[in-house]
Structures are given as C-alpha cells and as structure tokens.
C-alpha cells in the first residue's frame, strides 16, 4: 500500500526523493479521510516552499485541508492533470496524482520524515 521508497509526514504527505528532486503528494490515508476530492489548489512553479509550511490545499465538498511541504525547495512543476481531474487524488494518490515536483534546498530534512513502516504504524495508532 505505502511505497517503501517514499518518505511520509504526520500531516499525511509523501515525498519521493530522486537526486535533488522531490515529488510530493498526499497519502492514501489522507484521501480516504477527505472523501471525494473536488478541487486542488497548488503553488506556481518557481515558488519557494519551506518544510512544514502550507504549499496549497485540497478540497472535498465540505472540507478544506492544507497540504504542507514535506521538504523545503523550489517548485519545478505542478501536476497539470489535477485541475480537470481532481478525482485522480482518490483513485491514485501515490502515482498519477502527485501534486508538485521540487528541487530540494535542504536534502538533510528528509531524515525528519517517516518510513513506510513508521507511517503505517502512525496511522494505525491514530485510528
């Protein structure tokens, strides 16, 4: 369920680090909690994100949830498909529905994040 090569936050984001690039998304657990996602608000390419600060939000019909940057960095690209098909976040949160790609400015921050096993234990305990 939760890919081993991802790192996870307590706010239910994931990041996949490849070299100095990170791909960010929200976890399957997060999309389940939110229910049907209807809108995604993302930063503009070039925006500088800081670990733990809001990078945008995802909305269901009756809730808005901030998405926090799992790592600091500059936004390289945002997922263009989500504007027209936010439902992808429900169907493929760990794949096609990635939110942003960024260039890491402080790669050491990754060490603060959870492994897949830790995250699964964390959401298990949260329940």
């Amino acid at each position: 369920m939760y890919p081993e090569n991802f790192r996870y936050t307590k706010e239910h984001e994931w990041v996949l680090v490849e070299g100095d690039t990170g791909t960010v998304g929200i976890t399957d657990h997060a999309q389940q909690e939110l229910g049907d996602i209807v809108y995604v608000d993302l930063p503009k390419p070039g925006a500088r994100l800081e670990q733990g600060k809001s990078l945008g939000s995802v909305e269901s019909v009756k809730a808005v949830s901030d998405v926090y940057a799992p790592v600091s960095g500059e936004v390289l690209e945002i997922n263009p498909a989500l504007a027209d098909a936010p439902e992808t976040l429900n169907s493929d949160p760990h794949g096609a529905a990635w939110l942003v790609k960024l260039r890491l400015s402080a790669p050491a921050e990754v060490a603060n994040l959870m492994s897949a096993a830790d995250y699964q234990a964390y959401i298990g305990a949260e329940k």
């Binding site: 809108y39 909305e59 019909v61 009756k62 809730a63 808005v64």
Partner: peptide, 12 residues
C-alpha cells in the same frame, strides 16, 4: 463551491 464560505473555511 461552499469551501469558500465561512462555515467551512472560517477565518480564511
């Protein structure tokens, strides 16, 4: 589009 409104987004 009620997520714009006060009963959901409150102070934002």
């Amino acid at each position: 589009l009620a997520t714009r409104e006060q009963h959901i987004r409150r102070e934002k």
